[in-house]
């Protein structure tokens, strides 16, 4: 899922303070899982901003609403009137939702979150990166552990010389991806995969190739 982290209140305040009617608008799918931008969190954020407005002595109407997903047209129908009433929207979706709304509505749409990464819920309250959406998956050769997303240097023939006690040189709290890969390949009896040189990566399927798009002609025709 897409993980996000709410921006500092001060930064949000600076964006919205000059508007009269602001809608704090939640997105109840990905970012809601990490308890950051869901409809419940939008409600809490709206009340914090109302308090801030009182403190600052600024007259501003701050309300909240939300939908299931801000990245698909069909979900917006039930919220059209609320969005229409607002001068500006503070979207607590990921960056996709913010941009999707900006394309749909001719009014300021501000980001309430920093979109952080594509990750998993390791345990309640702990979210960790697993994928960089590089467009060419090599997990089949690396024992199901991604060196692109999880090695600080994206080393494809690792581990580098900084691996110590199974940890990455950047932090004792970060696992060395290549230690994990070696351990996993041993477990699977697949160390032959380690011996093979990993070829140079084609980054054109990653962001290096420009904005990416997937078109399913078969679905469009229907």
């Amino acid at each position: 899922m897409i993980v996000g982290e709410q921006k500092p209140l001060e930064e949000i305040w600076e964006m919205i303070k000059d508007h009269k009617k602001v809608l704090v608008f939640g997105c109840n799918t990905c970012v809601a899982v990490c308890q950051q931008g869901g409809n419940k969190e939008a409600e809490i954020l709206a009340s914090m901003l109302r308090m801030k407005a009182v403190q600052e002595g600024v007259d501003i109407e701050i309300t909240d609403a939300g939908i299931e997903r801000q990245c698909e047209h069909e979900f917006f129908e039930k919220a059209e009137s609320r969005i229409g009433d607002a001068d500006a929207v503070l979207s607590t979706a990921c960056g996709i939702g913010v941009q999707f709304m900006a394309e749909k509505y001719p009014k300021p749409i501000y980001p309430g979150l920093n979109t952080t990464f594509l990750g998993a819920v390791e345990e309640f309250g702990v979210y960790a990166e697993r994928c960089q959406a590089c467009g060419t998956c090599i997990l089949g050769q690396t024992g199901g552990i991604c060196p692109i997303a999880r090695c600080a240097k994206r080393v494809l023939n690792g581990p580098c010389g900084g691996s110590t006690n199974g940890k990455c040189e950047i932090s004792k709290d970060v696992d060395c991806a290549w230690q994990l890969i070696v351990d996993r390949l041993r477990l699977l009896g697949r160390m032959d995969d380690y011996e093979a040189l990993t070829p140079i990566k084609d980054w054109s399927t990653d962001r290096a190739g420009g904005p990416r798009k997937l078109v399913r002609e078969d679905l469009i025709d229907e």
Partner: peptide
């Protein structure tokens, strides 16, 4: 490979890491 940029005087740099050291050898 190079020490990670966080150790240096520009820790906010984007590390390139387009290829790794083994691939630089083969190149």
């Amino acid at each position: 490979s190079g020490d990670h940029q966080q150790f240096g005087d520009h820790p906010h740099a984007k590390g390139v890491f387009d290829i790794d050291s083994t691939q630089l050898i083969s190149t």
